[in-house]
């Protein structure tokens, strides 16, 4: 899923300080699963904004609403009759949400309420970790099913570098060296030889480096 984190409240308050009718818009997709942008969090943020207003002696109206998804025009359409009632929208979907909203409702003031972090999953309750950098050409099967592009700090395809120590990456003791894990796993699997083969430079054409990406599936196009 796409993992996001709520923006500091102060930052959100600063964004919406000139607006008095605010819609906090949640999303039932990834951000619900990572407990940051679902209906529950929309209610919390709305309440927080109201407490801030109370504290500052301001009168504001804040309402919350949660869409099935904010990355789908069909659902974005659902709020067409209500969006004009608000002078600001705080989307707590991933970065796609505020954009789909801005594109569909060009005159609306849309603000991002979360910081979109990465593609990953929950490794423990309350702890998420990155897994994929969306390089566009998946190669994890060469590395024991683990991705060195997203998970090695230097995206080395012929790792590990000389900074790996005690299973940790040179950048921080809190970051696992994925190459350490890859080597150990391949050794256990009796497939170490595969790692001895030189991996040539990767084509990043399919990654973000090749420009903004777009996917067309003719059979699905109406």
């Amino acid at each position: 899923m796409i993992v996001a984190e709520q923006k500091p409240i102060k930052e959100i308050l600063e964004m919406v300080k000139d607006y008095n009718k605010i819609l906090v818009l949640g999303c039932k997709g990834c951000v619900t699963v990572c407990n940051v942008g679902g209906s529950k969090e929309a209610a919390i943020l709305a309440s927080t904004l109201k407490i801030a207003a109370r504290k500052n002696g301001k009168k504001i109206e804040v309402e919350e609403h949660t869409l099935e998804r904010q990355c789908d025009p069909e659902y974005i359409d659902e709020i067409k009759d209500m969006i004009d009632d608000y002078d600001a929208v705080v989307s707590i979907a991933c970065g796609v949400g505020p954009q789909f909203l801005s594109e569909r409702y060009p005159s609306a003031r849309v603000f991002p309420g979360v910081d979109t972090k990465f593609m990953g999953g929950a490794v423990e309750h309350g702890i998420w970790s990155e897994r994929c950098a969306g390089c566009g050409t998946c190669v994890v099967h060469h590395f024991g099913g683990l991705c060195p592009i997203a998970r090695c700090s230097k995206s080395l395809l012929n790792g590990p570098c000389g900074g790996s120590s005690n299973g940790k990456c040179e950048i921080s003791k809190d970051v696992d060296c994925i190459w350490d894990i890859i080597v150990r796993r391949m050794t256990e699997l009796g497939r170490l030889e595969e790692l001895l083969e030189f991996v040539p430079p990767k084509s990043w054409i399919t990654a973000r480096d090749g420009g903004p990406r777009r996917l067309i599936r003719e059979e699905l196009v109406l």
């Binding site: 529950k40 209610a43 919390i44 309440s47 927080t48 109201k50 407490i51 109370r54």
Partner: peptide, 13 residues
């Protein structure tokens, strides 16, 4: 008791 339950009273005075 959810976070929202704890916030609501502050919101309401």
């Amino acid at each position: 008791i959810e976070i929202l339950h704890l916030l609501k009273p502050f919101e309401e005075g």
